[in-house]
Design a protein around this nucleic acid. Structure first.
Length: 279
DNA sequence: CGGAGCTCCTGGGGGC
DNA sequence: TGCCCCCAGGAGCTCC
């Protein structure tokens, strides 16, 4: 989605903004009208991403604020011809001075939203500053992550989903990386050695890299790129959503357990609750 | 303070 | 067919 935004809206100047649902801009510090007014006649800069936050600095000139989007559970940022009919859950429409395709924020559940926010000196919006770097970010610090993990007193998957420690790893990719690492979701973080964490990070990066190559994990039309196209990483899932299916390594049935008001999928044989004694 | 549960929404799908 | 319940790629708030 970030790549798609950069290719299709960066460098364009906003001519009109429609907020069709006020809840979609509830994180904006001001009214819907203020949100629209702050975007008018601004030029969108290059697209940035951290975790599930996306932002485009606002020109012209040295950017002091940015258009920030968060997708929540069901948000989409689509680039659509102005003539295309409104999507059912269209929340925000941004039209451009060149009369080319519109940027549309579509969100069924409205857990996501958009805002115009000031940028810090480092060029990061205020609402994104507490979000850790993504493991695909060259500046992600593996050593610091391993140390932070050992300081935590919680379960491994909880830590992977904690965006202040590491971002970009959601429920699906956490389960996939844990399966590849043969680690149980509740493994105490303080038992994670530097080597175990290095191995886990390698698997996290492999999972994210493969998913990006395949356009993401798309169960249905909710999960799409800016052109509305679904990815197909769901065909590569070894754990997530595979309850009852044989583990691709050992044949044991994958198990589903309730976890943080959602689900964890794991192989009870490959990923035992306690660390293996050796090997 | 860090950690964990609850909650904000809408809709699809399965079971009865 | 209809209804009810469960579930869903997230994360902020509030309590302990």
């Amino acid at each position: 989605m970030r790549r798609g935004l950069e290719a299709s809206v960066t460098g364009r100047t906003v001519a009109h903004v429609d907020v069709l649902h006020p809840r979609a801009v509830r994180r904006h510090d001001g009214s819907s009208a203020d949100f629209a007014a702050r975007l008018l006649r601004r030029t969108l800069g290059p697209a940035n991403r951290r975790g599930k936050y996306l932002w485009l600095p606002l020109g012209p000139g040295e950017p002091e604020e940015a258009l920030v989007g968060h997708l929540g559970m069901s948000g989409q940022l689509l680039v659509q011809p102005a003539a295309a009919g409104d999507q059912r859950h269209l929340r925000v429409r941004v039209s451009f001075a060149d009369a080319g395709p519109e940027l549309r924020f579509v969100d069924q559940r409205t857990f996501g939203g958009m805002a115009v926010e000031p940028l810090s000196g480092a060029g990061v919006p205020a609402s994104v500053e507490h979000i850790a770097r993504d493991p695909m970010d060259p500046q992600f610090d593996d050593i610091a992550f391993a140390a932070a993990l050992r300081r935590r007193r919680t379960g491994l998957k909880r830590a992977l989903l904690d965006q202040s420690l590491i971002s970009g790893v959601g429920n699906i990719y956490a389960d996939e990386a844990l399966w590849r690492s043969r680690l149980h979701f509740a493994r105490p973080t303080q038992t994670m050695t530097k080597a175990a964490t290095a191995g886990l990070l390698a698997h996290v990066r492999a999972v994210l890299g493969e998913a990006l190559d395949q356009g993401g994990t798309s169960f249905d039309a909710l999960y799409v790129n800016v052109n509305g196209e679904s990815g197909y990483f769901d065909r590569s899932l070894d754990a997530y959503g595979q309850a009852g299916e044989p583990c691709a390594r050992c044949g044991t049935a994958i198990r589903r357990e309730p976890f943080m008001n959602r689900s964890s999928f794991f192989c009870p044989r490959c990923q035992p609750p306690r660390a293996r004694a050796a090997g």
